[in-house]
Simulated scan of single mutants.
Amino acid sequence: MKWTESTRPSTGRTQWRVELSKAQPAWGRPAVKCYFVEGVGLTCVLVDGRFGPQVTHEGNRLIGRVPSELFDDMESYAIQHDVGLRSSPGGDLSVGAFDIELGAQRAGDAVVTWALLFNTGEIAGASWDIAPAEVWRHW
């Protein structure tokens, strides 16, 4: 476990990141990163597509999947439950009713999905307002 502290210029609030790795991390990459904001608490959890634990939401596996298959599942869920889809800052689809952003990262010669679970609370309007910039560069 690794603990990092910084101050977010846009809010002036102190932000912490806790990284959780497997016992023998491959390439030193954390399996999960948890982000905390002063006065708010836990705001985001980033789960790596290669090394993170499996996460499911509403019966959909989110981690380590072929992106097109997961995005098809998200679209089917949205149609079946009459909820909207939205696009992440990286252009990936997710269900509007979920506080989850999905993305893709390289896994050798393949590409697999990662997930950001977030809670904007009362200090942000959307995931890109609350998540640190490093999240959107998670390849």
Score class of each variant (00 low, 15 high):
Trp139Val: 13
Ser87Thr: 10
Ala107Leu: 05
Cys44His: 14
Ile123Tyr: 04
Val45Ile: 15
Glu75Gly: 09
Cys44Arg: 12
Glu75Cys: 04
Ala97Asp: 03
Trp16Glu: 08
Leu102Ile: 15
Pro132Glu: 06
Arg29Ser: 00
Ile123Gly: 06
Gly125Ser: 07
Gly84Ala: 06
Ala107Asp: 10
Arg61Ser: 06
Glu134Tyr: 14
Ile63Phe: 04
Ser88Cys: 13
Tyr77Val: 11
Arg106Val: 10
Cys34Glu: 08
Leu117Arg: 09
Glu19Thr: 08
Val55Gly: 02
Val32Asn: 01
Glu19Phe: 05
Gly108Glu: 07
Asn119Gln: 15
Arg8Gly: 00
Pro9Glu: 12
Leu62Ser: 05
Trp16Tyr: 15
Gln105Gly: 06
Gly39Asp: 07
Val37Lys: 01
Gly121Met: 06
Glu58Phe: 07
Gly96Ala: 15
Ser94Phe: 05
Arg65Tyr: 04
Val112Lys: 08
Ile79Val: 12
Glu58Asp: 09
Val55Leu: 10
Ala26Val: 10
Leu70Arg: 03
Cys34Asn: 05
Glu69Gln: 11
Ala110Asn: 12
Arg8Asp: 13
Met74Trp: 04
Val40Gln: 13
Pro132Ile: 02
Ser21Ala: 14
Phe51Met: 09
Gly90Pro: 00
Arg106Gly: 02
Trp114Tyr: 14
Gly12His: 15
Ser6Leu: 13
Phe51Ala: 02
Leu62Met: 14
Leu62Glu: 00
Gly125His: 06
Lys2Thr: 12
Gly28Arg: 02
Phe36His: 13
Glu58Ser: 08
Trp3Gln: 03
Asn119Lys: 07
Phe71Gln: 05
Arg106His: 03
Pro53Ser: 04
Gly39Pro: 06
Gly39Met: 07
Ala104Glu: 09
Tyr35Asp: 08
Asp129Glu: 13
Asp99Ser: 12
Gly90Lys: 07
Asp82Cys: 09
Pro9Phe: 08
Ala124Ser: 11
Ser94Tyr: 14
Val40Glu: 15
Arg13Gln: 15
Trp114Ser: 08
Arg86His: 07
Ile123Asn: 13
Val45Met: 14
Gly59Pro: 15
Lys2Phe: 11
Ser127Asp: 05
Lys22Asp: 11
Leu42Glu: 15
Thr113Ala: 06
Val135Ile: 10
Ser21His: 13
Ala23Ile: 10
Pro30Trp: 00
Ile130Val: 12
Val37Phe: 00
Gln105Cys: 08
His138Leu: 12
Val18Met: 09
Gly28Asp: 05
Thr56Gly: 04
Thr7Glu: 14
Thr43Arg: 05
Lys33Phe: 01
Thr120Glu: 11
Lys33Leu: 02
Leu85Met: 15
Arg61Val: 05
Gly96Met: 08
Ile123Arg: 14
Glu19Trp: 02
Arg8Val: 10
Asn119Tyr: 11
Ala26Ser: 07
Gly12Trp: 11
Trp16Val: 05
Gly64Leu: 13
Val83Thr: 12
Ala104Pro: 00
Pro30Ile: 00
Ile63Leu: 03
Asp92Met: 15
Ser94Ile: 03
Ala78Ser: 07
Val83Trp: 06
Ile100Cys: 01
Leu117Val: 02
Gly64Glu: 03
Glu5Ala: 12
Thr4Pro: 04
Phe98Arg: 02
Cys34Ser: 01
Ala78Asp: 06
Asp92Ser: 08
Leu93Trp: 11
Glu5Tyr: 10
Asp99Pro: 03
Thr7Lys: 09
Ser127His: 01
Trp128Asn: 05
Asp109Gln: 08
Trp114Ile: 06
Thr7Ile: 14
Gly103Arg: 00
Leu93Arg: 05
